[in-house]
């Protein structure tokens, strides 16, 4: 067991190499965060975030920053789910993700699930700042508790800006100590898996996607801008992923 909260920063910088590919002039991380370049495809660079330690624990503050320059294409995933665990330090753990994508750049931010174990207390912010011609595919999945345990406390805020204009700003509070009604019929109704898939691209301006439900527990929600949110809840992580994958396939098809 660690005795002091960890401060860690991981940085990824993607740049078009001028030959149709993407290079990574910055790729570093310390503490529990280690970004590794893996084999890319086409002009796209692939990075996997490897959790060198289990975390985040109470008291930890992890920061991840990815910047995609004009024309660069980056895909980031993670090697395994992140598990938020209780720690000895008061004040909970914190994880901040800041993403920027320049004109003509493209970022696929597809980490594995965030699992909030019983007793954990985590605040997550994810902020994506995009230029008007940038493209983004971003997926976030929150799993409230490991199998058959009570969830930890989670406060998660997701903000997406396009050309300086906020098109999505939403916060989810759940678990013990969260504001009342979070598990009730208006918010999660007992579901233990919550997910968001955000797609941004100029094509959504030209050819807007229609809004509508995807079964009972998910919906395609075109935002007030060239972006779409798929919001989903599910009983478990597997079902949630299936819902989001289906939605992604459906939405990706007409744009290519």
């Amino acid at each position: 067991m660690r005795t002091a909260g960890v401060r860690a920063l991981a940085r990824i910088h993607a740049r078009a190499d001028g030959r149709g590919g993407t290079c990574l002039p910055v790729l570093d991380g310390d503490g529990p965060l280690a970004p590794r370049r893996t084999r890319g495809s086409g002009g796209e660079a692939h990075v996997v975030l490897v959790g060198a330690m289990s975390g985040p624990l109470g008291g930890d503050h992890l920061t991840v920053r990815a910047d995609v320059e004009p024309g660069a294409r980056l895909r980031v995933g993670s090697a395994a789910a992140t598990i938020a665990l209780p720690g000895r330090h008061p004040g909970g753990a914190r994880q901040d993700v800041t993403l920027t994508v320049a004109d003509g750049g493209e970022l696929h931010w597809l980490p594995e699930q965030l699992i909030c174990a019983q007793g954990s207390d985590l605040t997550v912010t994810t902020r994506a700042d995009l230029a008007p011609g940038a493209r983004l595919v971003l997926r976030e999945e929150q799993i409230l508790g490991r199998a058959a345990e009570q969830p930890g406390r989670l406060l998660s805020r997701l903000t997406v800006r396009i050309g300086g204009r906020t098109v999505l700003d939403q916060e989810l509070a759940c678990g013990p100590g969260a504001t009342g009604g979070w598990d009730g019929p208006a918010v999660l109704a007992g579901r233990r898996a919550v997910g968001q898939l955000v797609l941004v691209g100029p094509e959504f301006e030209v050819r807007p996607v229609g809004a509508g439900p995807l079964g009972e527990d998910a919906a395609v929600l075109p935002l007030a801008g060239p972006a779409v949110l798929v919001s989903a809840v599910a009983t478990d992580a597997l079902r949630l992923r299936r819902l989001l994958d289906e939605a992604q396939d459906r939405l990706a098809a007409p744009s290519v």
Binding site: R157, T159, T166, D169, Q170, E171, L172, A173, T179, P185, A186, V187, L188, A189, R191, V194, A211, G212, P213, E216, D217, A218, A219, V220, L221, S231, A232, V233
Partner: peptide, 22 residues
């Protein structure tokens, strides 16, 4: 600025609203 405003969301209210609209 307006970022100081709360952004608390209720996933099921949003999801069910789309079904209801149809």
């Amino acid at each position: 600025g307006v970022d100081a405003l709360p952004a608390a969301s209720a996933p099921l209210l949003e999801i069910l609203a789309e079904a209801h609209a149809g």
